[in-house]
Design a protein around this nucleic acid. Sequence first.
DNA 1: CTATGTAAACAAC
DNA 2: GTTGTTTACATAG
Length: 466
Amino acid sequence: MGLEDAATLQWSTNCESMLPCLDQDNGGFHISPQFTSESAALSTYFPNDLPYSGNYNLTYSTPNPASSCPRSYASAHGLPGSMSNVPNSYPPSAYLIDPQKPQDVVDMSTQSRTSQFQQLQSPYENHVLPNIKVEESRDYDSRSYLPETDVQGRYPTPHDDPPLPLSDLGRSECNGTPAPDECAVDKEQPYAQLIYRALLEAPNHTMVLRDIYDWFKRNTDKAADKDMKGWQNSIRHNLSMNGAFEKVNHPSEEVKKGFMWRLTSDSLTTGVKSTTRYRKNQQNKRGQRSQHPQPQRQASGAKGGQAARRTAKFRRSQRLNDSYRSNPYSMSRSVPASAYSSGYDSNSDIPIAYTASPCYNSEVDFGEPTKKDDFGSPLARSSLSLLSSRSYSRSPHDVLIPDSAFVLPSDPSETLFYQESSTPSPPADDPLTPPSPGEWDVDTGPPTSTPFIYDDIHPNYSEFLG
DNA sequence: CTATGTAAACAAC
DNA sequence: GTTGTTTACATAG
């Protein structure tokens, strides 16, 4: 696809979105030549005193302020052929977690849009990734990108100053009125959306868990309950289970402090979706409760633990690779445990392939008004992932691995979701991760259109299996 | 029935 | 103790 295809960028750039001005070029993404040097403000994010341009030799430009919004969602795909002809294309607002309300309309014409755009751009978005030395996991200053406190010293709630989500761009049509105070709404916002908003405010839409906690303390009343734990658990739960959030390796080698969490490129355009999705095939509805809840709980815990172990081993492996590659982002994609559990060969316990997060695609959308697409509608979503600015990681063999390759068959018209009706549902007492998009039945093996065989690029994967 | 919140088990760190 | 994953369960609508 042509890099200069205006359709590729028109939605994001014209809307002054936070999407990077990156184009896809088959094997990888690269910086659009339209970038100019205007991004000094970004340097606040990095603790190593190197401005972004110094770190990455990249510069950014402000989006065209004269542009108008919104654009056709379909055209925003900027993809040829069928991808651009998605029949039911809605502006991102259509996928917003909460339906538009008149008071939600934000003013898109202010200069702050530009500054926010600049602020939210970050090198993570770009895959020209030189060796970056970052001493502390949390060296990035949480406060540096947060909105200023109001006169009472309180950080604004998400509704005080909506953080310019793309979705808002769509629904406000870029010429709305400033949003009135809606603090009361916070109580009713689900965790998923609050996390989404928190990440939207962060540079590169990336935060560490601790800072998400802090954001909640400041901006929500979820954390008001000093009983603690519960809300934090919920945040972690949502981060793990909601496909709008993905883990990225922390730029530093300090892994003890955990991953950084980032909004997926998809979520930037489509908004956050229900975390409930993962329970789509859940069998243990009320009334069908297992006779042995305690062992079940144990089983789930064990599965979680095993997933954590696999992830940790994988991370260790990645770290080794990174050490010689000097690329802290080499494993920029979250590795959902279920990618292993469900991708395992049931006998050898060897992962057959990467798959997307089980939560990555869903038919359950927040506030999505007319989404009547059947379950095979991931085309739009998939095409969006092709626009991902950070979907590429490098294999140990220096093969560019598109993120989307985990879920995208080579032919975009192919079905991505394998909703095998013949696939037996897991028994109630045998907890099993629901089938993931692009996943295959454990017993029957991979679909013929298996998009990506992990062994192709990482034959030594078994090293970090248990 | 869905969406959401919460509790909890577990493993790694 | 924290982080991350997963499942179970409760509840509102």
